[in-house]
Design a binder for these strands. Sequence first.
DNA 1: GTCGACATGTAAATAGTTACATGATTCT
DNA 2: AGAATCATGTAACTATTTACATGTCGAC
Lengths: 191, 191
Amino acid sequence: MQGSHFYRSVMKKGNKSRFAILGILLEKPRSGYEILQFMKESTTHFWQESDASIYPMLKILEKEGKVVSQRESTGKRERTIFQITDDGKKEFLAWMALPPEKENRRSELLLKLFFGGNTTSKEILKTLYARIQKIQETKETFKQIETAALSSVSEKYPHKRFWKMALRYGTLHSEAEITWLTECIKILEKK
Amino acid sequence: MQGSHFYRSVMKKGNKSRFAILGILLEKPRSGYEILQFMKESTTHFWQESDASIYPMLKILEKEGKVVSQRESTGKRERTIFQITDDGKKEFLAWMALPPEKENRRSELLLKLFFGGNTTSKEILKTLYARIQKIQETKETFKQIETAALSSVSEKYPHKRFWKMALRYGTLHSEAEITWLTECIKILEKK
DNA sequence: GTCGACATGTAAATAGTTACATGATTCT
DNA sequence: AGAATCATGTAACTATTTACATGTCGAC
């Protein structure tokens, strides 16, 4: 009975944290902390969770029987390792088969640009310069992931091609954004 | 005193609905309904608000003195027209000068693709086919906006160049996504 | 010994959407 | 007369982040 409000608050449709966690546990059993680490290294550009969402969610998933936990304290400090169950796999695969819901993005950059006529070109340019630099850094990061982290994974590893595709998404969109920013900057500098 | 919780709940940093509204009112005075309409026609691909956020926000902005309202009932049914004040302009321009905050996007499509190794290529392909079709439609929409709505705006109108840039962003990113999807589909179809 | 990474959690604030609710006017 | 659009709003729910809180272990 206790915790039932918790249950409801996280179980309803729209919450996809659970699937991100289940998907990661499907690769291998991990602790909450390790899940967080893994996300930081891999999915961070298209999916992030905070510790405040991971730990409660793991408890809920365990209560639901989607994962089982196991206390580990081999030499190191204690930690709780979670493993996905058949029931968890089933739920995850059912989600995988569903078409992704519409993503409503909100871009503060675009909003500011859209309202650009209300201020000076100089001010807008400042924003765009900052942005192009950041994107170039991001693109560089992607390149490094490709040559470092990803290249050490065997070509036979079934996840590799998909990880590559996700990375490629980032690269192509970064390039598109750089192209766009360059165009905008050129237009605004002319005046 | 009453409504103070409301006040706080909407005034805190992070809430940018206010700026979207102020920016639109800067172009000309409008009713809540008209703001909604305008957003649907122009910013919807990078910024949307629902009626449940517009109306309360307009009241708050009025209480803060950022907008003033005026009841109108010329022949038609009554409506409340809002106009931005000098104070509102000041706040808006201060926001314009700030660099946009980091956007943390969450993409369910990317997440599913990332986990693609856990299911069949066929299933992933189904998702990608659906997506590429949707994006092509979106791109088509952009083209139509360019030739219809935007082309009727005078070149001299100070907002036009910025509206064009926002549109161009959509087009370039759509194209990047189509390229990416085509690549992914080719890879997955080979097996 | 202290700093950074490991490890786990709660509470509160904030954000944002959906559903609900109402009623007028215009068009067919 | 009935449907679509105009017009405005509230309540409830759901999601998500930030800040708080605590303690361990290993390295330097």
